[in-house]
Design a protein around this nucleic acid. Structure first.
Length: 654
DNA sequence: ATACGATTTTTTTTT
DNA sequence: AAAATCGTAT
């Protein structure tokens, strides 16, 4: 038996032991929300609920992994059958079973954003719109429009009218493209990220028997970060909870930072209206941060008016005030952070207890270079994920097309890696192979070689040679062997031409091969590649030796739910946080303030705000950056210098 | 007509 | 760093 009373406070205990039925938990930052949720799951299992009748929905893979492993430690039993993961994972799991009812073949492929953009570009080209019209929206923008429409349950018309009024003149074109894109996805048996959600909803609404099956099945539904759900996700949850009505949602409206993805925190605000019998709990005791840090967080967030009122109550004793550090420019900022990290390290702060947070990936560039130069080990939690890197996707394309010979995107990607084969030739080749009954063997025919321009023949020959060796090996060899063949068959040469860090990328590919063995089948692995973000760090030794010794560089979004002893927030200049672009959205300033709030509440002991006073931009020269408005508004006019919420440091010139 | 290489522009956030 | 653009070579 787990000793709940020993590990939980009163507030948390009430949540863990609650009766069931619709339950709303408003949980402030650092109030032990994850703890409450994991103990709740453990408690349910301990009281006899079968794990496969529990659904635990989270927002990121990381959150899912930490929670599941903690539950496993608590219950010391297998939680293999528990339905836990991101909404997209859960959607995928349901659709693998029932997707056929919507006309999908069982081994549909999931495409990521890049593939989706490419497919939209193809559709645009096929409809003859790319005619150099200057202001015609780019593929990625059209993708954003479509995706936003799906996720917020609006028509494309109203999204364009509301958020992209300058594209109204192209509305008809966008509609045509969206329509064609949808058709192509069906035709090619692929789903994008949004389909994983909207198809599940459709399945549950249109097929009462499926709805009954799943709502019978899930005795308890638990949702983390509910403030970040969009309307589709909320609807899916409502449908799944229809029968047993044991739905517990946990969230903090002050930490809603995903509205760009359609998240709508009125979901959490209106939960009591949708479930009038809902019980409500609040977790307001903060175990994480010093009173000084919480003071800044509380002072900042009161500037947002629409929210549940709550105030974080510190339990920790007095610490040091956060520190505002104006620096001359980016270079000095990188220098200051590196220097300070070295000092902290000398004072005994483990490197793994330090993080640097920023609003956008490119904010970390200079710091990365500086830390590399100074030999400070760091780990990046932003930018391209492992499985999104070009070399991984290239190699995956070869394997993908052998598994599914009608994978258009894979064919094109692989073909275009060869000399003298670009967009046009790849399209011609695809046109040829896709008409064959057996595209794979058609590659060895003369017709194949002649279906493109003559200059392409050498490349095509190389391609067919490589394909032959892959097909030969595929029968009784693992992915690692196939990857080796692809490397030897010309991909290593290609990388040497194109990249300066071939060694590093080869190691990546090796890891990639190893990782694939965790899956039941190669097919399954490839189909779900798009949902994976990083190599799982299951390996305990790896986690302790390597990760604990590295500074974490992360976007604020990815830092959500995590904590460090010392946090640096860099680029605290107006225009960077808040990001100027983001302010253009309605409510953008509030969302950015919530983002700032999330960043601040990650810190346990020490918090630094770095503000580069000037910025270089080519064309503009040197510009002066004002401090972030989120810092300025903390300094109330009639405040004694002694009472400022933060200290200021002067950095010596170097 | 097509592919490629040099140049220029532009970076939000995630599944 | 990556993508888009533009001019040149095949």
């Amino acid at each position: 038996m787990i000793a709940y009373e020993e590990h939980l406070n009163r507030e948390q205990l009430d949540v863990v032991m609650s009766e069931g039925g619709p339950t709303l938990v408003i949980a402030g930052a650092g109030s032990g929300k994850t703890r409450a949720l994991t103990y709740r799951v453990a408690y349910l299992i301990e009281s006899g609920v079968s794990p496969n009748r529990i659904l635990l929905a989270t927002f990121t893979n990381k959150a899912a992994r930490t929670m599941l492993s903690r539950v496993e430690m608590l219950t010391k039993g297998t939680i293999e059958r528990l339905w836990g993961g991101t909404f997209h994972h859960i959607g995928n799991r349901i659709l693998r079973n029932h997707g056929f009812m919507l006309g999908y073949k069982p081994h549909y492929t999931i495409i990521d954003q890049e593939d989706s953009r490419r497919l939209i570009d193809t559709c645009t080209a096929e409809l003859g719109y790319s005619k150099k019209e200057k202001r015609f929206p780019k593929g990625s923008v059209i993708g954003d429009i479509i995706s936003y429409a799906v996720n917020t349950d609006q028509t494309i018309d109203s999204v364009v009218a509301g958020r992209y009024p300058y594209f109204l003149q192209y509305l008809d074109d966008i509609l045509m493209i969206a329509n064609r894109y949808d058709g192509r996805k069906k035709e090619l048996n692929i789903m994008d990220f949004d389909d994983l959600l909207s198809n599940v909803r459709q399945l549950l609404t249109d097929f009462p028997e499926v709805r009954r099956e799943y709502s019978d099945k899930f005795l308890h539904i638990l949702v983390d970060e509910y403030q970040d759900t969009n309307s589709i996700q909320a609807e899916i949850l409502d449908l799944l909870a229809l029968h047993h009505r044991n739905i517990m949602v946990v969230g903090d409206d002050s930490q809603s930072i995903y509205s760009f993805r359609g998240a709508d925190f009125t979901n959490i605000i209106c939960f009591p209206e949708r479930y009038p019998d809902a019980k409500m709990y609040k977790l307001e005791t903060n175990y994480r941060s010093t009173p000084e840090i919480l003071n800044v967080a509380n002072l900042s967030i009161v500037n947002n008016e629409k929210q549940f009122h709550k105030e974080l109550r510190p339990v920790r004793s007095k610490g040091v005030r956060p520190i505002y550090v104006p620096v001359r420019n980016v270079a000095q900022q990188a220098d200051f952070v590196s220097q300070r990290i070295r000092d902290l390290w000398r004072e005994g702060v483990p490197r793994g207890d330090i993080a640097v947070l920023y609003r956008a990936h490119f904010h970390s560039m200079e710091l990365q270079m500086e830390m590399t130069r100074q030999g400070i080990p760091f780990e990046i939690r932003s930018g391209l994920r492992f499985f999104e890197q070009a070399h991984i996707k290239d190699v995956a394309a070869f394997i993908r097309l052998t598994v599914n010979p009608f994978d258009e995107l894979a064919w094109k990607r692989a073909l275009q890696l060869y000399d003298r084969i670009g967009k046009v030739t790849a399209q011609k080749i695809w046109g040829f192979v896709s008409r064959q009954n057996d595209p794979l063997t058609s590659v060895f025919s003369d017709e194949f070689l002649q279906s493109g321009a003559k200059t392409a023949v050498p490349g095509l020959l190389k391609f067919s040679d490589l394909l032959k060796s892959i097909l030969d090996l595929k029968q009784d060899n693992g992915t690692a062997v196939i990857i080796g063949a692809i490397l030897d068959g010309g991909y290593r040469d290609y990388m040497e031409d194109k990249y300066s860090d071939v060694k590093y990328r080869e190691e990546d590919l090796e890891q990639f091969g190893n990782f694939s063995t965790q899956f039941d089948s190669l097919e399954e692995f490839l189909n779900e590649l798009a949902l994976l973000t990083n190599l799982t760090e299951e390996n305990e030794t790896y986690r302790h030796t390597e990760n604990n010794d590295k500074i974490v560089l992360s976007s604020i979004h990815q830092a959500k739910g995590l904590e460090w002893s010392t946090v640096f927030i860099i680029w605290c200049a107006d225009g960077m946080i808040p990001l100027e672009r983001a302010l253009k959205d309605p409510g953008g300033d509030h969302e950015e303030r919530r983002l700032f709030y999330v960043a601040v509440t990650r810190a346990k002991d020490q918090l630094y705000f770095c503000h580069p006073l000037t910025d270089y931009t080519r064309g503009m020269g040197s510009t002066v950056l004002p401090p972030s408005r989120f810092l300025k508004e903390l300094v109330l006019p009639d405040l004694d210098p002694e009472e400022l919420p933060f200290d200021q440091w002067m950095v010596n010139e170097i």
